[in-house]
Amino acid sequence: MSGALETGLRLAERGRAALDGAGTLEKALRRFRWFYAGAEFCENLLPDAAWHEREVSFFLEKGASVCVLTPPLGEKGLKRLRPVFKRLASVFGRDPRAAGRVEVTVNDFGALELAAETGLKLPLSAGRLLYENMFFADRTKMAVINGEAVRLFRSLGVSRFEFSTTGRLLSNNFSEAAKYGFKPSDIALTLHYPYLNLTTARACAVGLPDIGPEDSVRGVACRRECQACSFEAGHPLVNEKLLVRGNTVFLKFPEKFYSDPATLLKRRINRLVYSPFL
């Protein structure tokens, strides 16, 4: 893969507010090219359209690039996301500053549908909750599942995929691409480190009150308990420590996960996003 390895910082739903503090923002702007802002795993944390416009404008003005993260969606999330996409389409769709510098990550096929419906022409990436429709991954490998998956995602305007790993150098099936019916050049990868999202719930383990047999809930009554803190959890069956942030359980992978940028680029990973446990 030609070109340089790009670097990014995930700010999640806090956006640039996560960089409050003396000199933190300036340091981040110097160190990272891409800023990942928005809710990735939970629709209850989805900010409104004005917030998204402010965040994207801010980073563009600072000369940085922005990827807007979006979560899995229920009907409520879909209704919240529609004005966000409409605003992004109208404000940045024809803004020359946005060309190649604003992207959107989707974690729900409904968001892909919504992007088409709202005329959102910004580049789309499949997020960490969708990439398994394209790849099989485990501790040691990450293989494109089949050529039809590549064709389908390309037809939907998606050629970048976001993922995390346990930290090892992954093998892949790119050398057998012809046999699988795809071209490696049709794929670009974004690697989030150093946490891997193991599983996500809609019923939040941290925040949702207990549900009795007589309760038929309309959804998650969210009081944003995830903003109070995160947790480390030990499980008697599991060797690793699990980390819980709101509705998602993570695994930390502290091992050094690559030797140099060339190794990553060879695996079509051309963007490396530091995703601290915010």
């Binding site: 969606l73 009907e75 729900d108 409904g110 919504l114």
Partner: peptide, 11 residues
């Protein structure tokens, strides 16, 4: 293949 909303259903 979780389908949680009408847009995903349309897809």
């Amino acid at each position: 293949q979780p389908c949680f909303n009408t847009a995903a259903l349309r897809f």
